[in-house]
């Protein structure tokens, strides 16, 4: 399953409402749950928060990639969120994060999990693409950017 197939309007949240790191993670997990992709949102959020406790996935230039392994999903699931005003996520460069890719994978599907993360890493090297994503006004615009 390619990354592009997983990003549909029902897993995109624009704008994110939460103003804290934990709130962002829970909001994105809830977005996936509402899309029918997470059986146990609390367990899924806990897996991501436990991973964040070991070290922030807030990168540079406003991008964050929170992720975790959890049996709460049956297959790889991705949510994309945009917080135009930025949220403190303990990022590497100390700046607020405003573009979030939350990834959940079952424990026995590490291959697709790693490839999805690698695709996101490649994608985020394009600062222009990230800037355009952050300026999206709704979920449809985000999906269209990926499919452009």
């Amino acid at each position: 399953m390619a990354l592009i197939d997983l990003i549909q309007e029902d897993v995109v949240r624009v704008p994110l409402e939460a103003g804290t790191k934990e709130g962002i993670i829970r909001e994105l997990v809830q977005t996936l749950a509402a899309a029918g992709k997470v059986a146990d949102p609390e367990a899924a959020a806990r897996a991501v928060l436990d991973r964040e406790a070991k070290g922030s996935t807030g990168l540079e230039e406003g991008v964050a990639v929170p992720h975790g392994k959890t049996p709460a999903v049956q297959s790889l699931a991705i949510a994309v969120g945009v917080a135009p005003r930025g949220v403190e996520f303990q990022a590497l460069d100390g700046k607020p994060s405003n573009l979030f890719f939350l990834i959940l994978a079952p424990p026995d599907q590490s291959g697709p999990h790693i490839e999805a993360l690698a695709e996101i890493a490649r994608l985020c090297r394009s600062k222009a693409f990230c800037r355009t994503l952050v300026s999206s006004r709704n979920a449809r615009e985000v999906v269209e950017l990926f499919q452009d």
Partner: peptide
Amino acid sequence: VNTRALSELVKAHIFLDSEQEEYHRDL
């Protein structure tokens, strides 16, 4: 076993070193 992606993810600071080892075992 996609060791190149694992290395890229550590380099991009998406994975911790310990996470790389854990995922390598998983793979």
